[in-house]
Design a protein around this nucleic acid. Structure first.
Lengths: 238, 238
DNA sequence: AAGTGGTCTAGACCACGGG
DNA sequence: CCGTGGTCTAGACCACTTC
């Protein structure tokens, strides 16, 4: 497995931090020292350090040095989002997926706007309920362009569609837009989920784009109010 | 105003895209051509292009080139979050801020954990209701360490505390952690907001860190369910 | 003055895409 | 094959912090 040098160095540095070789709030070796240690150029070291910084592991300070951040304060994975399902699985709760709908449909008006499709396009529609500790609390509705995903089975949907797309089909996701809002319940929600007597539901709409900037997937993830949690870690950019 | 070369080039390129000199889905000049045009080195051009990519303006494809993305599909500012207040103001709705509480308090147990403070620390507590089109729909609770913000007035709180901290005090924010969840109403919510008959409220908790990685601000932004909206745009990283 | 990270340069080689 | 973006190098100068 060939890997870029700066990524390899980045991973080695993350390891050192995680193992505690470098404690929080202490200073890392200077860039020039790291150049010596890893027998590479300064720009390569800097790429690795920038990765560490972007991912919340260190804080760089001009004139002073790079310092290890106390990640224990960021109680969960320092970047991206954490869905309740992921948290539940990390904490060892049982989690099952029930495929409620699985079919190939023609794009209707709504889907056309969401997916940027035309009326003749064929779209995979997958509706799955997520049950955690015996309660069905998340409803995931996925829509894919068939032209990007020619083959799909119910069995794949029981597992991780995401893994199938990335690992088996080799589709490369380049960016995604997320929208979070709170909507009123639909009949579908009431039918497929255990909702207690809540009248609203948290909706996460996800628009996923491929490397060539084409929109290929629209996902709607509907979470019961009390079980919703979203974490976001952001560094300041320009 | 002295500026880095790669940032200056980045801004010129953004301008060209926004003005339509380069249309969506067309190819940008190659990196080597840009090196010629801007009389600089390739690494500098690459830094500028990476900024464009991170901010969702272009898509780089190995072996092919850099392509202008159709940002009109990302209906709102392509990065970061968009609160209802910001959207409302963009659309020209009236928006006022009412300072409900403004005081210097000793950190209680709850604040100690949220702000990483000790019991002796003095903390600014500011509670503000946001009224949009005549309805009070957002309650912002802000807490700052006094040691970072020695002086604060009610007048500042009526405007933008954020601007005061960054522009006037020169505090440099380096990163922030956000947590979104849905909570039950508190008496405070009921007292300060126009809540119709909703029983829940969307809570955005914001932990803000300075350049030296010290936690200096904790903000709780409480949004009426029907007026909450959060947008997030993310590129894939390592 | 010495050490730190931030920027910039000029040049090299690579992997990928398309003719 | 050539042009593309991705990585890597060695060296330079700057701005900032600390002594």
């Amino acid at each position: 497995m060939k890997e870029n040098k700066f990524i390899s160095i980045y991973e080695q540095l993350v390891d050192k931090i995680k193992r505690g070789d470098w404690r929080p709030n202490t200073k890392l070796p200077s860039e020039n020292e790291l150049v010596e240690q890893y027998q590479t150029s300064r720009e390569t070291i800097r790429k690795a350090l920038n990765l560490l910084s972007q991912n919340g592991h260190i804080q760089k300070m001009k004139g002073k040095g790079s310092f290890v951040l106390d990640v224990s304060r960021f109680d969960f994975p320092v970047s991206g989002l954490v869905s309740f399902k992921e948290v539940a699985e990390k904490l060892g709760h049982t989690s099952t997926t029930i495929v409620k709908e699985f079919e190939l449909v023609k794009a209707d008006q709504d889907l056309c706007t969401q997916l940027g499709a035309t009326k003749k396009d064929l779209i995979w529609k997958v509706v799955r309920a997520r049950e955690i500790d015996g309660e069905k609390i998340i409803l995931d509705k996925d829509f894919f362009h068939k032209k990007y995903v020619p083959h799909l089975t119910k069995d794949i949907c029981k597992g991780s569609i995401y893994e199938y797309l990335e690992k088996d089909l080799g589709l490369k996701i380049s960016f995604a837009k997320k929208e979070i809002s709170v909507d009123e319940l639909t009949d579908e929600d009431k039918c497929y989920l255990d909702l207690k007597d809540y009248e609203h539901i948290v909706v996460v709409r996800n628009y996923v784009y491929l490397e060539d900037a084409s929109l290929f997937q629209y996902t709607e993830s509907r979470h019961r109010l009390d079980k919703f949690r979203f974490v976001d870690f952001a560094r300041r950019g320009i």
